[in-house]
Write a protein that binds this DNA or RNA. Structure first.
Lengths: 136, 136
DNA sequence: CTTGATCCTCACGTTGGCGTGAGGATCTAG
DNA sequence: CTAGATCCTCACGCCAACGTGAGGATCAAG
């Protein structure tokens, strides 16, 4: 399979695939003329890589994890890497969830304002400082 | 309040605060000698900015949203911005959750391997391709 | 008055995951 | 055989949120 098809089926750019190879994330055979040849499995592999990229892992971190997919041999280091990254992702999810909830609260206030533009001033302190209690 | 104290209390670097001012996210008075003077409210404001940064918003996007904190006046544009960003954050949370679940599955496989290193080969296809069904 | 901590303004450096030509070879359908 | 699509290798560009000095002014305490 050539690079264009892999790119299309995995939903990434051709440039991205070449970059992945440069980083050692995917290995491609070469045709006599130098064109990259990918096995079918490359598509799933690339999708997995994208999944981890989307979760904020660096190519170096992904490179550490990828061998596990082939071997399924869980060395202690591999188990640690997996749980470490899982923990990092959890932290990110928590941060995003906080931001999400905060925006939701502001959206609620906005909706209240639309219903009664004059009577909402009592909520002002909620918007100004939600997380900290009154200071006096 | 001077910049060092604000930085400490808000949990960011002094450089970051100067950068925020450069982006128009915080406004600081100046002492006669040119030192920045912040009001108490700056700490909460900066924390809010950090919250949105952590959620992946750009300074431009944050700049669009910040006025709402002061006025609490919900123009239609403001409501759209808020809901748009909330939607974007949701998408990110979903992506992170998928990655989290996938790693969790791999961790489970790793644990199975540790318990019985030889009998896990039947799970190999699960690791190789979880999302797609068998091809033949 | 001095000294160490804090502050100021430039202004260049960093990091990662690609985008985007330049310039040229190769493939494939008609 | 030819033309358009696809591929190749450099190699610079980009963007965002700061980090990191350089070189100098200011402040607070003893």
């Amino acid at each position: 399979m050539r690079i264009g098809k892999v790119a299309e089926r995995a939903g990434v750019s051709v440039r991205a695939l070449r970059y992945y190879e440069e980083q050692g994330l995917v290995i491609a055979d070469r045709s006599p003329s130098g064109h990259r040849q990918y096995p079918e499995s490359a598509v799933e592999r690339v999708k997995f890589i994208q999944l981890l990229y989307a979760a904020g892992l660096t190519s170096k971190a992904i490179l550490q994890i990828l061998p596990f997919l082939g071997t399924l041999i869980a060395t202690p280091q591999m188990t640690r890497r997996l749980t470490d990254e899982r923990a990092r992702i959890r932290v990110k999810i928590d941060a995003l969830t906080r931001a999400h909830d905060r925006l939701e609260e502001l959206i609620r206030l906005a909706a209240e304002y639309e219903n009664s533009p004059a009577t909402c001033s009592a909520s002002a302190d909620v918007a100004a400082s939600h997380t900290s209690p009154p200071r006096h």
